[in-house]
Amino acid sequence: MNLSRQQIRQHVRERRQQLSDADQRLAAESLLCQLQSLPQFQNANRVGLYLANDGEIDPEPVIQHLWHKGCDVYLPVLHPFSKGHLLFLHYDRNTLLIRNQYGIPEPRLDATAIAPLTSLDLLLCPLVAFDAEGNRLGMGGGFYDRTLSRWHPEANPAPYPVGLAHNCQQVEALPAQEWDVPLPMIATPDKVWQW
């Protein structure tokens, strides 16, 4: 039976929301270990990522590791004038966070803290589901598809996008749309997928 994108989204969100706090913590630590083996991660100085929401795999250990290494970390902020787009703002231990319209914490908008997307080395993306072809299904708003629409491994290689997910978020196949941007790499606690 072929499920719709919305049915897959709902099913996988329920699956990841059922993970216990202990499972979430273990997954987050294991994810950091997977990322540490990647040259793209080892060589990155400016990294965009997200704060976990709705059962997403938590990149907090990754953030702490990057800060310890002296890297700059950036979080997505909903663009105030361009609906459906993201800005990336510098994030450190002193950054004041506010909740956006979706209830997700983000830095308060400050023009001096915005980083041009192409100035980031690495972009660690949340996702709802993925398949063995690198197809990514998000929450449905298209924010990351728009963010990655100009990414190309040769012509526009920065930032290098990597999807982050729990193992349970892999599905057999995703019905792809023409605006979907397949990822070149997805990291889970158990494996790094590369295409």
Rank of each mutant, 00 (worst) to 15 (best):
M1V: 13
M1P: 08
R5C: 02
Q6L: 09
I8H: 01
R9N: 01
V12F: 03
R13A: 04
E14C: 09
R15E: 00
L19K: 12
L19I: 02
S20E: 03
A22D: 12
A22I: 09
A22V: 13
D23F: 02
Q24C: 10
A27V: 09
S30F: 05
L35M: 05
Q40S: 11
Q40R: 15
F41W: 14
F41C: 00
Q42L: 11
N43I: 02
A44Y: 09
R46Y: 06
L49P: 07
G55D: 02
I57H: 04
D58H: 05
P61F: 08
V62C: 05
I63P: 05
Q64Y: 05
L66Q: 08
Y74G: 06
P76S: 00
P76E: 05
V77F: 07
F81Q: 14
F81S: 14
K83T: 14
H85C: 11
L87R: 06
F88G: 01
F88E: 09
L89R: 05
H90E: 13
Y91F: 15
R93D: 08
N94E: 14
N94R: 14
T95F: 01
I98A: 14
N100H: 07
N100T: 11
Q101W: 06
P107L: 00
R108E: 15
L109T: 07
A111Q: 14
P116D: 11
L117I: 10
L117V: 09
C125W: 11
C125V: 15
L127K: 01
L137W: 03
G138N: 09
G138R: 10
G140L: 08
G141Y: 03
F143Q: 06
D145V: 08
L148C: 06
S149D: 09
W151F: 11
P157Q: 02
A158E: 12
P161K: 12
P161G: 03
G163H: 07
N167R: 10
Q169I: 06
E172P: 04
A173K: 04
P175H: 10
W179R: 15
W179Q: 11
